[in-house]
């Protein structure tokens, strides 16, 4: 199941400029440490990996654990090298992947 995501990338950048990328994915990041109303443990369900690639090259990656808040927000930087497509991947603990892309025009 693809989950809703939001990505903020500048539309344009100068070559060599360091740009900031902000991402959010809708996910409850259930820790597995909570109990429901009748005392049963609510099973863990979290995003465990995030990756941003440009032209097949990994630009940034992150490993997430239960200590990351619900609807994980991740911001990082990258150098604008050329116009192209940034690809984003979020992988949950069961290996399910949500993908998104953003284009940037570099002058």
């Amino acid at each position: 199941m693809a989950r809703p995501t939001r990505i903020l990338v500048p539309k344009t950048a100068k070559k060599g400029e360091v740009i900031e990328i902000k991402t959010i994915i809708n996910h409850h990041m259930e820790t597995g440490f909570r109990r429901d109303d009748v005392g049963r443990v609510i099973p863990r369900d979290i995003i465990t990996r995030f990756r941003c690639t440009f032209g097949g090259e990994v630009v940034f990656a992150m490993e997430l654990f239960t200590g990351i808040a619900a609807n994980p927000f991740i911001a990082f930087t990258t150098v604008a090298t050329e116009s192209g497509e940034l690809a984003f991947e979020w992988e949950d603990q069961n290996g399910e992947v949500t993908r998104a892309t953003a284009t940037i025009s570099v002058a």
Binding site: I68, A69, A75, V79
Partner: peptide, 12 residues
């Protein structure tokens, strides 16, 4: 490729 070592997230 990061350009700068700067990250941000929300933690519990």
């Amino acid at each position: 490729r990061s350009g700068q070592a700067r990250v941000q997230t929300n933690i519990r």
